[in-house]
């Protein structure tokens, strides 16, 4: 791999550009990244620490912010495992079985990607709100979904469910069913086959999907904003808390919470890069978003 890359650098192949063009292209790409990604990221951290480390820690220790962090972790802790189970089941069904409506299911899984998150949130308001069919019934039984944790969890699940499935479907389709059939023919039960053959075959792709799913679950704003109700200390997740603090001109607080989210993104990115670097072949072929 490395050898072939070195080879193309010394001997110009038919598709490679001349050095000037290459230089310009690279400069444009890097410049773009710098202005639109690196600079804002730097701004977040400088703003967060603008009043010193103690102010930063103080902002994070503030009860409302702490509650937002807890809520975000809770939502991710519920949504990610559920989407992991759903993603594996959906990918398994689509990749290994033939059934009517398979193409439809595949399209359906992509739906959250094509629908604006705000609309996803509104769907839940329409479903569970007071003017909906089941809304009054829920209210009579004292079940609170909207403007409470269950609604936030539901909206987050909806927005993040494609990640694991989309990562696994191409991978599992590519691997086919021969390994599973071999395990079964050797006497393994369905569960043994899944645990000892299928799971090890998809583990890196699965981890990758879970990472993306987690990053989105913690960072989701639109859908959650619609169903949350913005009750301080109760239904504010980190992204919502950032918005509130910002609107109150509490820049240090807003950027402190934002820096935590940014840090999460960076860690995810680092693990993702590491995975790609080490297990590239196992992950390759998976759809990128």
């Amino acid at each position: 791999m490395a050898a072939s890359r070195r080879g193309t650098a010394t001997i110009r192949s038919a598709v490679s550009e001349n050095p000037a063009t290459r230089g310009i292209l690279i400069a444009v790409a890097l410049g773009f990244l710098g202005v639109f990604l690196l600079l804002p990221l730097l701004a977040v951290f400088t703003q967060a620490f603008a009043k010193g480390v103690s102010a930063y820690l103080e902002a994070l220790a503030e009860p409302d912010s702490r509650s937002a962090i807890r809520l975000t972790l809770l939502v991710a802790a519920i949504a990610v495992p559920l989407n992991l189970v759903f993603g594996v089941s959906a990918a398994w069904a689509i990749a290994k079985f033939d059934f009517k409506g398979k193409a439809f299911l595949t399209t359906l899984i992509d739906l959250p990607f094509s629908v604006s998150p705000v609309i996803s949130g509104l769907v839940y308001v329409l479903l569970f709100g007071s003017s909906s069919l089941i809304g009054p019934w829920l209210m009579r039984h004292g079940i609170q979904i909207l403007f409470a944790v269950p609604g936030i969890v539901l909206a987050t699940i909806f927005v993040t469910f494609p990640f694991v499935a989309r990562e696994l479907i191409p991978l599992m389709q590519d691997q086919g069913t021969a390994d599973e059939e071999a395990a079964l023919s050797l006497g393994a039960t369905g569960w043994q086959t899944f645990r000892r053959v299928t799971l090890p075959n998809i583990k890196w792709g699965l981890l990758y999907g879970v990472l993306l799913c987690n990053a989105r679950a913690m960072g989701e704003f639109g859908a959650v904003s619609v169903v949350s109700g913005h009750i301080r200390g109760l239904t504010n997740t980190m992204p919502l808390q950032v918005e509130i603090l910002y609107n109150e001109y509490n820049f240090a607080g807003a950027f402190a919470v934002a820096s935590l989210l940014a840090l999460l993104a960076l860690v995810t990115l680092a693990i993702k890069t590491l995975l790609e670097f080490r297990y590239g072949s196992a992950i390759s072929g998976a759809a990128r978003h």
Binding site: G176, A178, D179, E181, A182, A183, S185, R196, V197, P200
Partner: peptide, 9 residues
């Protein structure tokens, strides 16, 4: 059963 692709784990 020996598969055409061997299907080794």
């Amino acid at each position: 059963f020996v598969f055409q692709s061997y299907a080794l784990f």
